[in-house]
Write a protein that binds this DNA or RNA. Structure first.
Lengths: 138, 138
DNA sequence: AGAAACTTGCAACAACATTGCAAAACCATT
DNA sequence: AATGGTTTTGCAATGTTGTTGCAAGTTTCT
């Protein structure tokens, strides 16, 4: 498991207080986080703008990846170590629990290839499964 | 092909000017639409709030379905005739063209089932493929 | 330690979304 | 076709979310 500093170094991001703290939040969290979640978890007062810009640079460098949602938010989750700037390997399935509303990266479930109609050239695929997660099954 | 009035009747939605017009926009459009797209296409002046509420009731009744995105918008697309309130059958793949930015419902490409880790109970799945669409291939 | 480059916070702003309420439209019934 | 009850609409106000420019503060590199 990498530390926050290692991750920043590896991705050629300068090491600042804000980035370290935000990265720690990701390292300590199971599921995916929305911008709002991160702000809530930030005990120290960082400016909203800083959080936006930090997430932005993390996405650009491939430290985190975005997960699509249908509720006007973007979720972010840590990338695995083999991610690189501009070329994410986050082709795993995301699971959204309808009970606890947590979004989990299923690192071991990769998005299957599908056969598209003639003329469509695929490039990247995302898959989101909704249901009950391990903790919320009954 | 159903008319706007038929669709409203079938879904027990009262027939109003706004709903007819918005439904027509969907019927006349190939790809998926964001809230903003719909407002742009509305020649008559409907209030923004009305558009929001219309889309909301359409989703609730299963007239349209939502497509997740990573850019803080929600895309909407017409459901096929066999959709019902609360139980969508929109398990087809969505294609987002990186060139023209159109999102298309690939009605005939259904989302494949994936094997989830123990304890996860799936319920619904969405899949989004990015790439070049038929019109934008080169 | 010092200069250059980058990051942060502030303030202002812009876009997007939600709520309550009164007026208007709709629908079922007579 | 008029009536009354229900639903929908528009407006206004408010809240939330995201962006930009700039000056001050940090970080990095030599």
């Amino acid at each position: 498991m990498q530390t926050n500093i290692e991750i920043l170094r590896k991705n050629k991001l300068s090491i600042t207080q804000g980035r370290l703290v935000i990265l720690d939040i990701f390292l300590q969290t199971e599921g995916a986080l929305a911008h709002a979640d991160i702000e809530k978890k930030l005990s120290s007062n960082f400016d909203r703008v800083t959080v936006y810009r930090t997430l932005q640079s993390f996405v650009e460098k491939g430290v985190i990846h975005q997960i699509p949602t249908t509720d006007n938010t973007i979720l972010y989750a840590l990338c695995k170590e083999n991610c690189e700037a501009g070329h994410h390997h986050d082709e795993h399935v995301h699971f959204v629990c309808v009970e606890c509303e947590q979004t989990t990266c299923l690192e071991n479930v990769i998005v299957p290839k599908v056969k598209l109609p003639r003329g469509f050239k695929p490039f990247q695929a995302a898959m989101i499964v909704k249901g009950h997660c391990v903790s919320c099954k009954y």
